[in-house]
Computed example of a mutant assay.
Amino acid sequence: MKLSHHSVILTAAAACLLATPAFATDVLRHKIPNSTFPIAAAVEIPAGKTLVFLSGVVPPVADTSAPKDSPQAYGDTKTQTVGVLTSIEKQLKGMGLSMGDVVKMQVFLVGDPAKGGKMDFAGFMGGYTQFFGTAQQPNLPSRSAMQVASLASPNFLVEIEVTAVRP
């Protein structure tokens, strides 16, 4: 293969970039300044990493003794959050990934009738903090949480989609 003068310069420049200590090879998670809130303000993904986009996950049935397709079968926001994140954790594990590889999360919360139609953010956080920001799993994703009018089932209060990076 014959290289032109420009190709050699570009190849040399690329080699210098790769050899430079400032060239990020790891995922960088930026904390929210002066905050202990358990999300990242931003996450940087270095070149060459593979992103994995998981579709939205909805809650599994939490109480099989409750009437099928009833709100009681799925539980409150915290119960649904734990169920959804457990499902995501299992799906990631099957792909050779973990919750520590999650870099972005989008959370869709329906207003809880038991909370006057307002989303139960505290309930969501009660489930979320079992999976993120723990001693065993300190990696925090960037995250958005929003209240939506409804999800695929009137009994769902939570749907979560994540993006992970393959280490």
Rank of each mutant, 00 (worst) to 15 (best):
K90H: 05
S70F: 01
K104D: 04
G126R: 00
F124E: 02
A122L: 00
A135P: 13
K68T: 11
G116E: 05
E89I: 06
F156G: 15
Q72N: 10
P138R: 07
V102G: 07
P113A: 03
T163Q: 13
S98R: 07
I160F: 11
P67W: 00
L85M: 04
A152H: 08
N155G: 14
G133I: 03
P113S: 04
L109E: 08
P113Q: 09
V110E: 04
Y74T: 03
G116A: 05
Q147M: 14
M99N: 08
Q147T: 15
T77P: 04
A135E: 09
S144A: 15
D76I: 05
A62L: 06
R143L: 15
K78I: 01
G126K: 01
G94H: 02
G94T: 01
A164Y: 08
A73Q: 06
A152G: 15
D120I: 01
F132P: 11
L157A: 13
P71T: 06
F121G: 08
S87N: 05
K93L: 02
V103N: 10
R143T: 13
A164T: 03
S98H: 02
P113G: 06
G111V: 04
P138M: 08
Q91S: 10
G117T: 04
L85N: 05
P113N: 10
T129E: 11
M125F: 10
F132G: 11
T77A: 10
S70H: 03
R143W: 12
T129P: 11
G111M: 06
V165M: 12
V165S: 09
V148I: 13
E161R: 13
I160N: 12
A73F: 01
D63W: 00
T129N: 14
K104W: 10
V102I: 11
P138L: 08
P71V: 01
G111A: 02
M119L: 09
G127I: 00
V102H: 06
K68P: 14
F108K: 11
G133F: 02
P67L: 01
G75V: 02
P67Y: 00
E161N: 15
